[in-house]
């Protein structure tokens, strides 16, 4: 668990981060979001002491980060920087192996790990011998993430890790990272200024503005209880719809079918349809309700506007 307590960072007159306190649960993915210059990078970098706060403390599992040697602390925290920053004179293999080498791993173990990470990131193993120059933006980002994961650190700090890729690749990287994270269950602090990305990945979101955390809660609660007008303004009018993308029909349909029911004359939706799509189908059908069917085509319940409202109104907190 990461505990940020009253952290302030001043640069002369500029207050980059102002009295921020956050508790980040183990195995959770917390997104820091906010407009450019609001202090996201500054805040995330106080965790691995790339920046020393002017005031306040950061604790990891109850231990002040200042208590360990700074290099040791950093070797135990995966770090993906905003601008990738691969070492241009190292091969992809050497880039990924950076921290294992600092930790003095054996050659074979390091090599196995490099291959494992290339597989995990969906990069062909032959990439190991390439240089960063020879990679596309998306490939470089993957290598950046692989490098951060190399020594299997429990904590991952990611500062706009997918910032430098085009929207399509970005969505793919997000999906891949999401499924990796579901498996690895790292404690992740993830910086972005893209609401869509935040909604896709976050267990919790900390919305920042001018150095302060305006609100820190689950993505759903931002709709129910926005802390101030800025919240709805920043998240945008389509935020509720984006939120539906996190759920499937299975999370919200009404189980009101009697055993043996067959689909009515209208359209039916499979249970694993994303809610956003199901809503779209509902609107298109011109009806008030749709039958929900399971994988065998049996009717199991009803999907209607109330299911959607139930979901946004503080229903089950995410599918993961």
């Amino acid at each position: 668990m990461i505990e940020v307590r009253g952290v302030t960072k001043e640069y002369g007159e500029v207050v980059a981060v102002r009295d921020v306190s956050l508790e980040i649960g183990r195995g959770e993915l917390t997104v820091l979001i906010g407009p450019s210059g609001c202090g996201k990078s500054t805040l995330i970098r106080t965790i691995n002491r790339m920046i020393e706060p002017t005031e306040g403390t950061v604790e990891i599992d109850g231990v002040d980060v200042r208590e360990s040697r700074v290099e040791e602390l950093r070797r135990g925290i995966g770090y993906v920087i905003q601008t990738v920053g691969l070492f241009p004179h190292f091969s992809v293999r050497e880039n990924i192996a950076t921290v294992p080498r600092l930790l003095g791993w054996e050659r074979e173990r390091t090599e196995r790990r490099v291959m494992e990470l290339l597989d995990m990131m969906g990069l062909h193993r032959s990439f190991a011998d390439k240089r960063p120059r020879e990679l596309s933006g998306g490939e470089a980002q993957r290598v950046g993430v692989a490098r951060a994961l190399a020594a299997d650190p429990p904590i991952l700090l990611m500062d706009e890790p997918f910032g430098a890729v085009d929207p399509q690749n970005r969505a793919r990287l997000q999906e891949e990272f999401y499924s990796i994270q579901k498996r690895l269950k790292k404690t992740v602090v993830f910086v972005t200024h893209d609401v869509e990305e935040a909604v896709r990945l976050a267990d919790r979101i900390a919305l920042m503005r001018a150095g302060r955390v305006v609100q820190y809660t689950t993505p759903e609660r931002f709709i129910l209880e926005p802390a101030e007008a800025f919240v709805s303004e920043f998240l945008g009018i389509e935020y509720p719809l984006r939120l539906l993308g996190r759920h499937s029909v299975a999370d919200c349909y009404r189980k009101d079918a009697a055993p043996g029911d067959t689909p009515g004359p209208g359209q039916a939706v499979p249970m694993d349809t994303p809610t956003r799509e199901a809503l779209s189908l509902l609107v298109a059908s011109g009806q008030k309700r749709l039958d929900v069917v399971d994988s065998d085509g049996r009717v199991v319940g009803t999907f209607d506007f109330e299911s959607v409202l139930g979901l946004l109104g503080g229903g089950p907190g995410g599918e993961g």
């Binding site: 770090y79 905003q82 920053g85 950076t98």
Partner: peptide, 25 residues
Amino acid sequence: PRVLEAARGMGMTGNQVFWRIQLPL
């Protein structure tokens, strides 16, 4: 700077950053 940021962020000491990153480059 971003390469240096990454090197320090990975946990290299000042000397390691110099010998492994700055000098070869």
